[in-house]
């Protein structure tokens, strides 16, 4: 068993899951977030059906606050893999001026991401949505299934989750049910990068170090990606050598100062750091709440 063997095994499992999704559901879709995990998932879909085309569309839920570089990349990549791309935005949210700056982070995320996704799934009648989440992203995902059942209204009900055994997946849906499918469940961040390197999968350049304009807010480095960014008094963006470990809406993504400019550098850096990736996302970065409070929230 070797590192190659590991990547081969993870790839084979992901292909099997993507194929099963395409074959077992009436209207599957692949959620595409433009990040590295989505990149791997899309590449795997390409391999799963070659030489036939990918038999389902890609869908990007666009909050309108993604990095400009991500949007350019997205449109190129859809062409590269010859796949239909659906872009969906919660127009009501736009009309209500729900932005990372006007609404709280939670409310913004709920309206522009969660609600937007549900809306899109309903509008197109998709019964299965492939997503690039991994179990190593956070501990609560340890219990998530590869085929994760959603009840009517897209509700996730732990009690309704189905046991997963052997290579046999129960894909049966009753009225109103849908499925979220996670082919990369068993991958780690390191696996994703090593596979990306091995396969030469294109990624958004923001993952690699470059001098970029940033401001420092509450200890986090935020990139000023466009003129919509409201600078506070006395704030002036300065150029720093930064990169991103995960990508999302630019006002919510904390950059890390790092000189890693290539995939090789990045993998090297990853092996030596052990900080969980999500610590870099402001959304999840709880300020060190008292342990008592965490208990009450049911964290443990």
């Amino acid at each position: 068993m070797s590192r190659t063997g590991l990547l081969d095994a993870l790839e084979a499992e992901a292909i099997e899951i993507v194929r099963e999704t395409a074959a077992a559901f009436d209207r599957p879709v692949m959620l595409y977030s433009i990040g590295k995990d989505s990149g791997v998932m899309l590449h795997i879909a390409h391999k799963a059906f070659a030489p036939a085309p990918i038999p389902f569309p890609l869908m990007h839920v666009d909050t309108t606050w993604k990095f400009a570089a991500m949007i350019r990349f997205r449109d190129e990549i859809a062409k590269h893999y010859g796949v239909d791309l659906i872009v969906h935005t919660n127009q009501q949210g736009v009309a209500d001026d729900i932005t990372p700056f006007t609404a709280g982070t939670q409310e913004y995320t709920r309206v522009m991401k969660t609600v937007a996704l549900r809306e899109a799934l309903d509008q197109y009648g998709f019964d299965a949505a492939l997503g690039g989440s991994r179990r190593d992203e956070e501990r609560s995902r340890a219990k998530e299934r590869i085929f994760s059942l959603r009840l009517p209204g897209h509700r996730w009900e732990p009690r309704a989750q189905r046991p997963e055994m052997w290579h046999t997946y129960n894909t049966r849906l009753t009225e109103g049910q849908t499925m979220r499918v996670f082919p990369l469940s068993n991958w780690t961040e390191l696996d994703v990068w090593q596979y990306t390197r091995r396969e030469g999968i294109p990624v958004v350049p923001l993952y690699f170090a470059a001098e970029r304009p940033v401001v420092s807010r509450d200890g986090a480095l935020i990139m000023v990606d466009d003129e919509r960014f409201p600078l506070r008094d006395g704030e002036t963006p300065e150029l720093r050598l930064i990169r991103f470990r995960s990508l999302g809406c630019y006002p919510l993504c904390a950059a890390v100062e790092s000189p890693a400019a290539t995939v090789d550098d990045l993998i090297e850096e990853l092996i030596t750091t052990r900080l969980s990736e999500r610590a870099g996302r402001l959304i999840d970065g709880e300020k060190s709440a008292s342990m008592e409070a965490k208990k009450v929230e049911g964290y443990f």
Binding site: R135, R139, A142, K143, P158, R159, G298
Partner: peptide
């Protein structure tokens, strides 16, 4: 994490 869920009456079958 799972133990607490059990206390809340949620049955999780397997964690990976």
């Amino acid at each position: 994490g799972l133990e607490a869920e059990r206390e809340q009456g949620i049955t999780i079958d397997v964690a990976y």
